[in-house]
């Protein structure tokens, strides 16, 4: 079957970008940041080193308020994997604070699911 609209084509040229932006690393230093991990700039924020790149600065500025990793990536128009690596470094250096995303367990705690259910019902 031929997909009617192969959107992945739009991004064909970007496969090399992540490796450039993240200085050759394809993996975050810490494996704890998932797509829905919430990020916010540490307040007060320590100054970024002069060596910090444009992407790091843009990411930190974007995180002046609370957003998930995937939202930050969409707003910066960067692939999620790239922002994950940059964010991990900024968390390690204390510039960014991460709040737990989805737990890495097979099944979510029942109380959390119940809270989601209550929230959906109240909408």
């Amino acid at each position: 079957m031929t997909p009617p609209d192969d959107r992945s084509r739009e991004y064909r040229d970007s496969a090399l970008r992540p490796y450039v932006l993240t200085k050759g690393r394809a993996r975050p230093s810490r494996n704890t940041i998932s797509v829905d991990t919430l990020l916010i700039a540490t307040d007060p924020a320590p100054p970024l080193p002069i060596s910090a790149g444009r992407q790091e600065r843009a990411l930190l500025a974007m995180c002046r308020g609370l957003l998930s990793l995937v939202e930050v990536a969409a707003r910066l128009e960067l692939p999620v994997s790239v922002v994950r690596v940059l964010a991990s470094d900024l968390v390690d250096s204390g510039h960014l604070t991460a709040r737990a995303g989805s737990p890495r367990s097979a099944q979510l705690p029942r109380e959390l699911l119940q809270e989601v259910l209550n929230g959906l019902r109240a909408l």
């Binding site: 992945s8 992540p18 797509v35 829905d36 809270e115 989601v116 209550n118 959906l120 109240a122």
Partner: peptide, 29 residues
């Protein structure tokens, strides 16, 4: 490593003061 980029949709619903729900749309192929 052969990598490719694929698009995904997402949306958000803030369910209460402490909880946000994210929806991710991914193709099934």
């Amino acid at each position: 490593k052969r990598t490719t980029t694929v698009a995904m949709d997402f949306g958000r619903i803030t369910l209460d003061d402490t909880l946000a729900l994210y929806l991710f749309g991914t193709p099934g192929q």
